[in-house]
Amino acid sequence: MNMLPLIRTGLILILTSILVACSGSEETAQARPDPVHFESGDECHVCGMAITRFPGPKGQAISGEESQVRKFCSTRDMFSWAMQPENINRDYTLYVHDMAQTDWEHPDDTALIDAREAWFVVGSERTGAMGPTLASFAAQSDAETFAGQYGGEVVPFDGITMEHLSFGAAM
């Protein structure tokens, strides 16, 4: 009995299982990037203002393809950039400060959260670098508490529109 075909089949099965196992690790290698700290010399990608000199939540966009980090002095500027036609379909990760975990006047970068999972308060009396801003929270209940104290409307990430960014418009 010739064992060569049986050995060949066994080797093919082993190689196939190795390839399948390796393809699973590719997903891990493409995991979203970690947020980066805001440094004192950082300038807003939209308006050029010094980011750390102003109160309120900040934002950042990290591109998947080139790992380029764009930093924003406010969540409003981050959304303004992200909602532009040339950026809307880009592969990027967005981060914002969880304002329930940090001080409004000096947001701590250890409180950065995934913006796509965050809740935002639009139209509150609290201001950021460019005046009115969107207060960001990891938990809907924290956003509702903030809105109860400072006013505004609680909106999930995918509910934010360009109209929300023009604070004089009806919401």
Rank of each mutant, 00 (worst) to 15 (best):
M1E: 07
L4W: 10
L13R: 03
L13V: 10
L15K: 01
S17A: 12
S17C: 11
V20G: 09
E27H: 11
E27K: 12
T28H: 08
A29W: 12
R32D: 13
P33M: 06
P35A: 07
V36D: 03
G41M: 10
G41N: 14
G41H: 11
G41W: 09
C47Y: 00
C47T: 12
R53H: 14
F54G: 13
F54D: 14
P57A: 15
Q60E: 15
S63E: 13
G64I: 04
G64N: 08
S67W: 02
Q68S: 12
R70A: 04
F72R: 14
S74G: 15
R76P: 01
M78H: 07
F79C: 10
F79G: 13
S80W: 06
S80G: 07
I88N: 03
N89F: 10
N89R: 14
N89S: 15
Y95H: 14
Y95D: 02
H97S: 06
D98T: 13
Q101G: 09
T102K: 08
D103A: 05
W104H: 01
W104I: 00
E105F: 03
D108N: 15
D109R: 07
I113R: 05
A115G: 06
R116Q: 10
R116I: 02
R116F: 00
A118F: 06
W119C: 09
V121C: 07
V122C: 05
V122F: 01
E125H: 04
R126S: 15
T127F: 01
G128S: 08
M130A: 05
M130G: 07
M130P: 06
G131H: 02
L134T: 01
A135Y: 04
A138G: 13
Q140P: 06
S141G: 02
D142Y: 02
E144L: 09
T145Y: 02
G148L: 09
Q149N: 10
Q149W: 02
Y150R: 03
G152M: 06
F157L: 00
F157I: 05
F157H: 14
M162Y: 03
H164D: 14
F167S: 09
G168R: 04
A170P: 01
A170G: 09
